[in-house]
């Protein structure tokens, strides 16, 4: 079905190259279009390219890229899991925010020892994110409200609710921007490599990623998901319980997003701040990475890491040559758009 999915299952080199070719062209087109856009508004396309690459991998920047890749890979997996079965979760933004907000509340207010608090904060954040996504799934199962629309729309009230919490009842009066209080030292995720922004969250997400890739390839559940993605009616005919699968799949997807929210709050932001989780657009890039890979998890992970590098490069580019880094997001969407148009991914059924 997708370039990547086919690629991942075979080992022969020619097929490898053959299926990567459309992606290669799409990236070229993406850069060309972005270069042209930059050029028309009076910015240098060449400078854009060199600064992007330098900013992504040069020296300590590589740690920035890794740190950025952690949430991005997570969000890519959150989007990829349902996509593998041919359904969409466009509401990972809301699930991310809920997870982060709840984790912050537990970490700040639960009367328990530090170690227990941090574990419970992670677990609750994960569960709440999952439950919210599962609610959308229930809407599709029982009331036929399409996930495509409901997941997106459900993000707004979730963000609104969390925003209100930190504006009023839980607000830290000492900071100007609406936030919770700062999470105490003992309840934070520790730095994995001192002096870098990489923390224990890396291990959590790496473990989840390996688990998901393994289950996708080697488990009966993964097989059912994959087959449903290829032909849902066939999967149903063969006895796959479609509704139950939708429910737990959405739960898993939302849980992943919730976990990322918790990890970001406990590991790098140290407080839940209105808008801070969604501002870096992890959801956006994660969804695009998952689409690029056709829902295949390993492909989504690779794409997410590449996108993380691109974005770190984007920051550097913005600092040094004042080309707005949002251009990297334009680049990502053009790559997917180009591939989808050509039918190289997500062929119409």
């Amino acid at each position: 079905m997708s370039a990547f999915a086919g690629l991942m299952r075979t080992t022969k080199l020619p097929q490898w190259v053959g299926s990567l070719l459309p992606v290669f062209w799409a990236v070229i087109v993406g850069f060309a279009v972005c270069g042209a856009i930059a050029g028309t508004v009076g910015l240098s396309p060449l400078l854009m390219l060199t600064e992007l690459i330098k900013g992504a991998v040069e020296g300590p920047q590589i740690f920035e890229t890794v740190a950025r890749a952690v949430p991005l890979v997570g969000m890519a997996l959150a989007a990829a899991m349902p996509l593998r079965a041919g359904i969409v979760n466009l509401g990972t933004d809301g699930q991310l925010v809920l997870g982060g907000c709840v984790a912050a509340i537990i970490a700040l207010y639960l009367p328990a020892p530090d170690g227990v608090r941090i574990v419970l904060a992670l677990i609750t954040g994960t569960l709440v994110g999952g439950a919210y996504a599962a609610l959308a799934a229930a809407g599709e199962i029982y009331a036929r409200v399409p996930l495509l629309v409901s997941t997106w729309l459900m993000s707004y009230p979730a963000k609104g609710l969390c925003g209100w919490l930190v504006h009023a009842p839980l607000a830290d009066p000492l900071v100007a921007w609406p936030s919770t209080r700062r999470i105490p030292l003992g309840t934070r995720l520790e730095h994995l490599i001192p002096g870098t922004p990489i923390n224990d969250g890396f291990l959590l997400i790496a473990f989840a990623a390996i688990l998901i890739v393994f289950l996708d390839r080697r488990s009966s559940v993964g097989y059912e998901l994959r087959l449903r993605g290829l032909n849902e009616r066939f999967a149903r005919y063969g006895g796959v319980a479609i509704d139950r699968q939708t429910f737990w799949l959405m739960f898993a997807s939302g849980a992943m997003a919730g976990l990322i929210g918790a990890v970001l709050v406990l590991g790098s932001q140290y407080r839940f701040t209105d808008g801070a989780l969604t501002a870096p657009q992890y959801t956006w890039s994660g969804t695009l990475a998952a689409l690029l890979a056709g829902g295949e998890p390993l492909g989504a992970i690779i794409a997410a890491v590449l996108f993380a590098a691109l974005q770190t490069g984007g920051f550097a580019m913005e600092r040094s040559v004042e080309i707005p880094r949002v251009l990297t997001m334009v680049l990502e969407s053009i790559v997917i758009l180009f591939l989808a148009m050509r039918g190289a991914i997500w062929r119409r059924r």
């Binding site: 956006w284 695009l288 689409l291 997001m329 758009l337 148009m341 050509r342 039918g343 997500w346 119409r348």
Partner: peptide
């Protein structure tokens, strides 16, 4: 092409 995937990428 798949109109849903194109739609999502166009929105972004």
């Amino acid at each position: 092409g798949n109109d849903i995937v194109i739609g999502i990428s166009l929105n972004l």
